Simulated assay, not measured.
Amino acid sequence: MTTSDYATYIAGLPRVLAAAATLFRDERGRVLLVEPNYREDWALPGGTVESGDGESPRQAARRETAEEIGLDRAPGRLLAVDWARGEARPPIVAYVYDGGVLAREELDAIRIQEDELLSWRLVDRADLAGHLSDRLGRRIAAALDALDSGTGTAELEDGVRVPA
């Protein structure tokens, strides 16, 4: 296969997006959510993996968290991976990492990226559904379950756990 043939082959492959987010909690177990200015539902701090730069999902979670809320810390273990089908976009593989428990001083130091976010808040697990899309709500619930159980990473499709 020539270089030109290979380039044509690669250009014809399907495209899949990747995103990464970090799940932070406070000492009471509430989840830190951010309010984007470009959609109705809330989200975890995170965003698109910049694969053109060779960025990994873990690196993207750290970068996006630093950009969006001013916390620059390495993410913990991978809690969930979700294959999310899109209607107006290609499918996306979403990674959710453990951000750990934030101390009061860290919460007080949060500074939101005003270009993309309106605010942030801590939300009890029982109240998450009122802030999130159904799919993201299922993804976060699976990540919290993986965290609580100490078991492996939750594998999801559209926020639904894949049977083993």
Rank of each mutant, 00 (worst) to 15 (best):
I140T: 02
R161S: 08
I92N: 14
A146G: 12
G99S: 09
W120Q: 01
G152N: 08
D108P: 03
T2G: 10
W83D: 07
R30A: 10
D53K: 15
E68R: 09
V162G: 00
A18Q: 14
V93K: 09
P45V: 03
E27T: 01
R28Y: 08
V101N: 00
A7K: 13
L23I: 00
A84E: 12
W120R: 02
W83C: 02
L44F: 02
S149G: 13
G130F: 07
A18T: 09
G86H: 06
V123T: 10
V93W: 09
E35M: 10
L144H: 04
T22S: 13
D26H: 03
L144Y: 02
P57T: 06
D72P: 06
E106S: 03
E87M: 13
R85F: 13
G52T: 11
R161D: 05
W42P: 04
P14C: 10
P14Q: 09
E87K: 13
R135E: 03
L78K: 05
A126Q: 14
G100P: 08
I110L: 06
D124S: 15
A60Y: 05
V49C: 07
D145F: 11
D26F: 00
Y97R: 06
F24L: 05
Y38D: 13
R121Q: 14
R104P: 08
D72I: 07
D148N: 11
E55H: 06
R139D: 03
S119A: 15
R85K: 13
A84P: 00
D148W: 04
T22P: 08
E116V: 15
I112G: 01
T151S: 14
I112N: 05
G86F: 05
L147W: 08
D82E: 01
P45Y: 01
D72C: 07
L132A: 04
A109C: 10
L107P: 04
G150W: 05
G47R: 06
L136F: 08
E106T: 02
G76H: 03
R63S: 11
A129N: 07
A60H: 04
T2S: 10
L147F: 07
W120L: 02
L79W: 00
T48I: 15
V123L: 01
A146P: 06
E155N: 09
Y6L: 12
T65L: 08
L71R: 01
A43V: 01
E64I: 05
E50Y: 14
G152D: 06
E55L: 10
A19L: 07
A80E: 01
R89N: 11
E155C: 08
L128I: 07
D145G: 11
A109F: 03
A103P: 00
L144A: 00
D134K: 13
E40H: 14
G46N: 06
E40Q: 14
E106D: 07
G159A: 07
D53S: 15
L71F: 02
S133H: 05
V96C: 00
T65I: 04
R28F: 08
R125E: 15
A74K: 12
P57K: 05
A164W: 11
V16W: 10
A61G: 04
A88F: 14
P57I: 03
S4D: 09
D148Q: 11
S149H: 05
I69G: 02
A60P: 07
A109Q: 06
A18L: 11
G99L: 06
P36I: 08
S133L: 09
L13A: 12
G52D: 11
W83L: 12
R111Y: 05
E116Y: 15
G137L: 04
G29K: 05
L156Q: 03
R139I: 11
